[in-house]
Design a protein around this nucleic acid. Structure first.
Lengths: 180, 180
DNA sequence: CATTATATATAGCGATCACTATATATTCTC
DNA sequence: GAGAATATATAGTGATCGCTATATATAATG
């Protein structure tokens, strides 16, 4: 399972074939389909596994407690620590795993988890900044999408750490800003 | 040409087949290969055409003149105007056109243009902020990557406009910040 | 041990991939 | 108008895609 998740994470949904997944799992196609139903079924499990584990940076940042500013700051810093390439895996599986996939269902699955993640971020922010929860949530998710993208393009931990610092300051500035 | 570029832009390099490109161009495979050499050859032309046109938001922002802060601010705002979906096309072809492609050469081509674009941004910033040109350039490219990604995921002009405003303020703040 | 049920492997399904060999039509030169 | 050169279309190359029908091995039950 973790092996298959790794492959999807490394190269994206389309670029990983069922044959390769079978080889990685040490099984043959019929067993693959008996176990997961379809390639999409395995991808769904991979996303679930990913979101339930330590890669769910916002969930981890939440556990640290503190106010919204602190949680969001930790979220950015966790992303900067987790996203850079490690054993060929970079960025976020949820954000980029189904990107540019030719399979509409795979894209929809990615969108579903992205929406879920955004909702969690938004709800957290709303506790302190109800009026601007949506805009601040968009700020966070867009920044994370950028971090995942450049990480997949080769950005290292230093660069992402700098960006995380910038975004943490930007978040505090925007949260405290008077509305237009 | 513009038709093929549109297809790559819409769905990414891998998700567009040669057969579909031929149909869109109104030619048959042999003529396709006589004209472009390969699918990759057409993609290269598409990237060149894209970077030479109005989609090169930084080039457009530069033409407006003014200081670095103004140019970068316009860059973000132009991205917010250009990236939202229009006729099924969203985000940036250079940033996301080859993302998750199984073809290493296509990915390399995308990386090449991304590096070129980053260099232009860096050089512009260096004129006023030589000591922190690299860090500020990373700030801009990462933000643009995030904007392209969320635009491809459905973000609208309002959302991206807000983010552009945030990033413009963040850029000015970071540019004026004392070094750590 | 015989029989039934379960799970595995072999092999191959049709479809699509990027790409091309061959043949036909067209255009240019003389 | 005849012949040579160019460009087009038809058709199909092997490879790979996700997926499965059939057959064989294993395990559970009587």
């Amino acid at each position: 399972m973790a092996t298959a998740m790794r492959l999807f994470h490394q190269r994206g949904y389309d670029a990983v074939g069922v044959a390769e997944l079978c080889a990685a799992l040490g099984i043959k196609p019929p067993s693959f389909y008996a176990a997961f139903g379809s390639k999409l079924g395995l991808f769904e499990q991979a996303l679930r596994h990913y979101a339930a584990g330590p890669a769910n940076i916002f969930a981890r940042a939440l556990e640290g407690g503190g106010g919204v500013d602190a949680v969001i700051g930790r979220t950015f810093r966790e992303a900067a620590r987790l996203y850079p390439a490690c054993d060929g895996v970079a960025g976020c599986l949820v954000i980029d795993g189904a990107r540019n996939s030719a399979d509409a269902e795979a894209r929809a699955l990615g969108a579903l988890w992205k929406a879920d993640s955004r909702r969690a971020i938004r709800d957290c922010i709303a506790a302190e900044y109800p009026a601007k929860a949506d805009r601040l949530a968009d700020l966070v998710t867009t920044a994370l999408a950028g971090m995942s993208a450049v990480a997949r393009d080769g950005a290292d931990a230093d660069m992402l750490g700098d960006f995380a610092g910038v975004m943490e300051r930007a978040f505090r500035a925007e949260a405290g800003r008077a509305d237009d």
